[in-house]
């Protein structure tokens, strides 16, 4: 029960039920669809880059509160980050949800997205929480493969 109340905390409820990130971007560079056929969550994620930096993101779609909140909070967390930083945060988020242990210190870079930690105790909802993150990961991978996104390889 604790897990449930944690999973549906105020931050998640606010983002999940009525998000200011739910809109269309005027000049998106990339758009990617994501869906969970099982529970019917569907999102369309838009991304605008400024060089290597995520200048803006937004989403439209519908689904459960967890999937919608996760999308919205991901957008807040990653806006202004470089693609390299974003990829690292995506990886950390996925590992947190899949319970591949991370230290508190590493989890800190998730900022507000750490609010989803308890979803890792609700196996039926893991896919909902991961939807946006996998969608963005796909978008970046596709962009890189097609040469439209040039991540710096200086690390």
């Amino acid at each position: 029960m604790d897990d449930l109340e944690q999973a549906y905390n105020e931050l998640i409820m606010e983002h999940g039920m009525n998000s200011y990130n739910k809109k269309k971007l005027d000049h998106a560079d990339f758009c990617e669809l994501g869906h969970n056929p099982n529970c019917g969550d569907e999102i369309s994620l838009e991304l605008k880059l400024n060089g290597n930096i995520i200048e803006d993101m937004a989403f439209t779609g519908h689904g459960c509160a967890i999937s919608q909140a996760s999308t919205s909070i991901m957008i807040d967390t990653l806006k202004g980050k470089t693609l390299e930083e974003a990829k690292e945060i995506i990886k950390t988020f996925i590992e947190m949800i899949k319970r591949e242990t991370k230290t508190e210190e590493e989890l800190e870079k998730l900022e507000d997205a750490i609010a989803f930690k308890n979803v890792s105790n609700m196996p039926a909802r893991v896919k909902c929480a991961l939807l946006a993150w996998h969608t963005l990961e796909d978008m970046i991978n596709k962009g890189e493969e097609s040469g439209k996104i040039k991540s710096d390889c200086c690390h």
């Binding site: 449930l4 999973a7 039926a124």
Partner: peptide, 19 residues
């Protein structure tokens, strides 16, 4: 969303299907 409702019912031990 019914998926959220089903999770909350689950926390009370009530098994329903959503989807």
């Amino acid at each position: 969303h019914p998926h959220d409702v089903a999770s909350i019912l689950d926390s009370e031990g009530v098994c329903v299907r959503s989807g």
